[in-house]
Amino acid sequence: MGTSPHPSKVSEKLLVIHHGFLSFLRHRQGWQDIIYGLKLWKLAISLGWLDIKLRYRGSVVGPLWMTLSSALMVGSMGLIYSTLFKMVLRDYLPFLALSMILWQNVLSAIISDACTCFLQANDTIHSIKLPYFVQALRTMVRNFIVLAHNIIVPLVVFVIFRVWPGWVGLLSIPALALWLIDGIAVCLLLGSLCARYRDIPPIVNSIMQVVFYVTPIIWQPSQLAGKDWWLPLNPFYPLIEILRLPLLGGVPSLFVWECAFGYSFVLCLVAWFIFARARPRLAFWI
C-alpha cells in the first residue's frame, strides 16, 4: 500500500492511449482495405459476372428472364395504375417503366444484396486474405449487370411512345456516379451490420416496403398537388429524382441535387465509421 497512490488512474490513462492508437490503426487499415480492394477491380468484375452466370446456368433464356419478368410487371402495372390515376398511358408508362426498374432492380436490389454482401462470401473470407471491399465491388458489379438487362424495358417503352430526353439526359451520368458511390457505402454499412446482427435484414426489408409507397415511384410528385413539402425529408426521393428526371427530359432543381449530395455524404460518413470499426472483427462474426 502507498507505493502507487493512484493505480486506477494510471491504468485508465493507459487504456485511453491504447484505445486512441487502436482507432487510428483501425481507420488506416480500413483505408488500406479500400485501396487494395480498388486495385483488385478486375477480380471484382469477374466475381460479379460469374455470380450472374452461375445463377442462370442451365437456363435457356438465361438472364433475359429478368427482362421478361420486368416487362410483364411494368406492362400490367402500367395498365392498372393509369386507369386508377386516370392518366394518359403515353405520359405515365415511360415514367413507371423507368421508376420501377430503378427501384426494383437497383435501389431495392442493392439494399437487400448489401445485407448478405459479406455473409455470402464466408467461404472465401475464411480461407483467403482478401480486402472486404472486393465483396462490396462485386455486389455492385452484379447489380449493374442486372440493371443492364432490365434497362431494356424502359428503353423499349421510350421507343414505342417516342420519348427522347435529349441532351438533358446526360445529367443522369453524374447521378449514376453518385449512385455507385452510395451503393458501395450501403454494401459496407449493411454488410458489416448484418454480419453482426442477423435481425437487420428483416428490418431492412420491412422498411423498404414502406419506403416504396411513400416515395414517388408508382405515383408522380406532381400528383401531390402542392402538398409535397415533406418529400425532400425522404432520402430516397432526391436520389431517385436526380437520375430519373433527366432521363425523362427534365432538369432537377438545385435543391434536389443538394439534398442528394447531403444524404450521400452522411451515408458515406456513417458507412466509413461502421466499416472501419467492424472490419477487423468481420471474420469472427461470419
Binding site: 452461375l54 467461404d123 472465401t124 475464411h126 480461407s127 483467403i128
Partner: peptide
C-alpha cells in the same frame, strides 16, 4: 495459405 481443401474455390 492452404487452409481448406476448397481454399476459396467456388
Amino acid at each position: 495459405a492452404l487452409l481448406d481443401p476448397n481454399a476459396g474455390m467456388n
